[in-house]
Simulated scan of single mutants.
Amino acid sequence: MPLNLRLRGSLLGSLHFGCLVLAQPSVDPCYNYTVLDNPWRDTTYGSGSNCDQSVSWSGWYRLFINTVSAHIPDTCVAYGHCGTNIALWIRGGHPTVQDGVVTRDVCGYAGSYCCYYGSYPIKVKACPDNYYVYELVRTTLCSSAYCAVVSSINTSYTAVTPATISTVYPSVDPCYTYTVLDNPWRDTTYGSGSNCDQSVSWSGWYRLFINNVSAHIPDTCVAYGHCGTNIALWIRGGHPTVQDGVVTRDVCGHWINYCCYIGSYPIKVKACPDNYYVYELVSPTLCNSAYCAAVTNISSTTTITPETSTAGNVV
């Protein structure tokens, strides 16, 4: 189906001493956007072959469904809705007006996981009259498309908080009750392979070693075809400090020029006093994918800020 876009102009005119004075257009995307009103984007619509990967996106967009203002869902949308196969939603909740422009991750459901497919992040802004505008970008795969939902919102309220996994502190400290994971092929310097962690019966907490040296899961992007597998898994959000206790981190895999194209189930991480980390690992979403291990000097007393990449670039 053709993409239906209508430009909403912002150039205003006013009479001044009998003359028409043209005001300069505002740069605020709340008043400079393109209308995106395809009926098939509605979350109540079934599957289809629509794909936003081929659209020449430019600037900011406001969503409508049947002339009613809509927004991209910030909760999981099941496979086969919104006139496509991979229905795209945003993770992290919508901002408030006070937040200004924020960046949000884009997710797509598959394989019983709400963020199985990642897509390039987009920018979002809440506008004073209770609507949102989005700086949309090309998606990572076909058939995938941005969804739209019509529901009551209030952009002046606190941003939506996404559901999180419970991080109840274990009764036994995992820093001293872990299983050693020391496959040499997990090293980030190792090439590709057919190893797959999906078939492993994971249980409890693990500490990584490479050639008897303490290692950790990378928290920056690992390129495709490393760590003895195809989809090399890394964690996003940085490692915690000892003071942080147990935290939850998203697991990502690089593919098709995007560092988090493949999402996998989140894992729990804990920093230990002697400068090492332990991980509560779970089966990833697909083969061939496996957790990587990196040997570098890091301190568990200082939070690591992960590097980020622009869309299409590997960090």
Results as ranks from 00 to 15, higher is better:
159 A>F: 01
275 N>R: 10
141 L>R: 14
211 N>L: 04
198 Q>A: 12
86 I>V: 14
76 C>E: 07
238 G>H: 01
295 V>M: 01
293 A>T: 10
232 A>N: 00
78 A>G: 11
112 S>A: 14
5 L>A: 05
106 V>K: 03
108 G>A: 08
6 R>E: 11
37 D>R: 07
213 V>D: 03
116 Y>H: 13
34 T>Q: 10
79 Y>N: 13
8 R>H: 12
127 C>F: 08
263 G>M: 06
88 L>R: 01
288 N>P: 14
254 H>D: 09
30 C>H: 03
237 G>A: 04
282 V>M: 11
23 A>V: 07
56 S>R: 09
252 C>M: 01
160 V>D: 15
238 G>F: 01
85 N>T: 13
188 T>R: 03
133 V>A: 09
41 R>N: 09
224 Y>C: 01
271 A>N: 10
60 W>C: 07
178 Y>D: 05
239 H>P: 07
170 P>W: 02
274 D>W: 11
168 V>N: 12
31 Y>D: 09
215 A>T: 03
303 T>N: 10
161 T>C: 08
151 S>W: 04
162 P>N: 11
174 P>Y: 02
60 W>T: 03
159 A>N: 10
139 T>I: 03
76 C>F: 05
73 P>R: 08
88 L>C: 09
179 T>K: 11
105 D>H: 10
77 V>D: 03
256 I>E: 15
118 G>C: 08
264 S>W: 04
72 I>T: 02
180 V>H: 07
229 T>V: 06
296 T>L: 15
92 G>F: 05
221 C>G: 02
282 V>R: 10
181 L>D: 06
70 A>C: 13
156 S>R: 14
133 V>Y: 07
225 G>W: 02
145 A>C: 05
66 N>E: 13
199 S>L: 09
193 G>M: 06
50 N>C: 03
129 D>I: 00
229 T>K: 01
26 S>E: 05
188 T>L: 02
205 W>K: 07
299 S>Y: 13
60 W>F: 14
239 H>D: 00
96 T>D: 08
92 G>I: 03
204 G>D: 12
189 T>F: 05
185 W>I: 10
180 V>L: 12
58 S>Y: 11
54 S>W: 09
186 R>D: 02
22 L>P: 00
215 A>P: 03
190 Y>A: 13
76 C>K: 12
275 N>T: 11
78 A>R: 12
294 A>H: 04
214 S>F: 08
221 C>P: 04
225 G>C: 05
36 L>M: 14
40 W>E: 14
127 C>H: 04
54 S>K: 09
282 V>L: 13
282 V>C: 13
260 C>F: 06
167 T>D: 07
175 C>K: 12
21 V>D: 14
16 H>F: 14
